[in-house]
């Protein structure tokens, strides 16, 4: 983890440096995911192919792109949720701290224990608010100081003040935004390293969306976040790094590909790929 940004000098490859000026962050960051030539097929259909980029620690990485470009498919590879889809086949490699997530002997249950996920639709369990957060730690054997753990998780998800007096009430009595924050609390209660958020605000109203976005800024300190969103403004507001996925149409097939990956500011102000520019300026998608 040497501070390599200092060693870049202006007189070498000026064009490249100019592009990097807006993105000095990644240079001194630890790589959490090293995605190498990743592809996903469902039966004969290729959903995504040739995805290749690094995801850095304690940053928010957004994955944006038009519908059907394989954003969700991609993020679900990061904690092996695609294992649950019958017929899904993953090619290429995802190195998580250097270890291949799809290598032999890797236990997907252990992977998901370290890499948590929050889904598009809030999906609290039909249990009490307390039990929603406490269930994961309980099952995983983290029973010590459970009350403190639950409180910490709920505070971390900025929900504690709203629910502290009704922890025994059903989680289904909460509003949609509260339910989603409860799902975030549930995910961070087991202290994962990474939090994957698959369009976490797309089913929420603007106020609830704002609170989720503010929450993400706070969570960055303790977790590495990857968020899939179809909402470009949301990516621009919350993400440090942004990956733009698009659809490549050929031979009657549509395959999701990674077009460009860079600092968010660069993606939105000065993208290097024409397709990215078309998308972020609203000419396409």
């Amino acid at each position: 983890m040497g501070n390599r940004s200092d060693t870049i000098s202006i007189d070498v490859a000026p064009v490249e440096i100019a592009q990097r000026r807006h993105a000095p962050l990644p240079e001194n960051r630890e790589v959490v995911f090293d995605v190498q030539d990743l592809g996903v097929r469902y039966g004969a259909t290729t959903a995504v192919s040739g995805v290749d980029f690094d995801i850095y620690r304690n940053m928010i990485t957004a994955v944006i792109g038009p519908s059907g470009c394989g954003k969700s498919t991609f993020i679900r590879c990061l904690n092996r949720m695609n294992d649950l889809v019958p017929g899904a086949q993953v090619d290429g490699k995802i190195l998580y701290h250097g270890e291949d997530l799809y290598g032999s002997g890797v236990d997907p249950v252990e992977v998901r224990r370290r890499i948590g996920m929050v889904f598009q639709r809030p999906n609290p369990f039909p249990k009490s608010i307390y039990d929603n957060v406490a269930w994961g730690p309980r099952v995983l054997g983290m029973r010590k100081d459970l009350d403190e753990r639950v409180e910490r998780a709920l505070r971390g998800a900025a929900l504690w003040e709203e629910v502290k007096d009704r922890l025994k009430r059903s989680a289904l009595s909460l509003s949609g935004g509260q339910q989603q924050r409860l799902c975030i609390a549930r995910a961070i209660a087991i202290e994962p390293e990474v939090l994957l958020l698959d369009e976490p605000a797309s089913a929420l109203d603007p106020i609830a969306t704002t609170s989720i976005e503010e929450l993400m800024h706070g969570l960055k300190r303790d977790f590495t976040l990857v968020i899939v969103t179809h909402n470009m403004q949301q990516a621009a507001r919350v993400a440090d790094m942004t990956a733009f996925f698009s659809l490549e149409v050929g031979e009657g097939r549509r395959t999701g590909v990674l077009v460009e990956y860079d600092a968010t500011e660069k993606i939105f102000t000065n993208p290097s790929d024409q397709r990215t520019e078309d998308y972020v300026t609203g000419r396409f998608g």
């Binding site: 904690n79 949720m81 249950v109 252990e110 998901r112 948590g116 889904f119 799902c183 549930r186 995910a187």
Partner: peptide, 11 residues
């Protein structure tokens, strides 16, 4: 959704 939510917790 519910079952995925549970599995995503590493259960």
């Amino acid at each position: 959704d519910l079952e995925e939510g549970a599995l995503a917790l590493g259960t």
